[in-house]
């Protein structure tokens, strides 16, 4: 991943599986970082709806996503007909990582590790 990645944050709005404090922390840090980013209410809903926005996001090329388990995120995009490029995608897991860890990884500059 060499280009500047698009930053995508999932709010997981319709379930309580991502700890509230983690979500709020990551969103606040992205907000304070002064960079452009995309935020979506719920990737699951968008996937089931085949929301064209997923295609748009997958098409950005390099992308760094704060959401849940990478395996779930990968196949949610795939199910919507918008597969992510394996070598251009980095997925941070807010279900298991701390808000600080996810935010640090999202906001760091330079190349992303996939």
């Amino acid at each position: 991943m060499t280009e500047k990645p698009c930053l995508l944050y999932c709010h997981c709005a319709y379930a309580k599986v991502v700890p509230e404090e983690t979500r709020r922390e990551v969103l606040k840090r992205l907000n304070d970082a002064g960079v452009a980013f995309e935020a979506v209410p719920d990737l699951c809903e968008m996937s089931a709806r085949k929301d064209p926005a997923l295609e748009r996001l997958a098409a950005t090329g390099a992308i760094r996503i704060a959401a849940c388990y990478p395996r779930a995120v990968k196949w949610l995009f795939h199910a919507a007909g918008a597969p992510l490029g394996d070598d251009q995608t980095e997925i941070l897991n807010m279900r298991v990582q701390t808000g600080d860890d996810v935010a640090d990884a999202m906001c760091r500059t330079g190349e992303a590790s996939s």
Binding site: C6, L27, L30, A36, F37, E38, A59, T60
Partner: peptide
């Protein structure tokens, strides 16, 4: 941001720096 996301809207924070997705329809 929290209000919009809690209400179910996708939000693009357009600021200098960073990459955003292109508009769709």
């Amino acid at each position: 941001l929290n209000g919009l996301l809690d209400s179910g809207y996708a939000v693009t924070c357009a600021r200098d720096g960073g990459t955003l997705s292109a508009p769709d329809e």
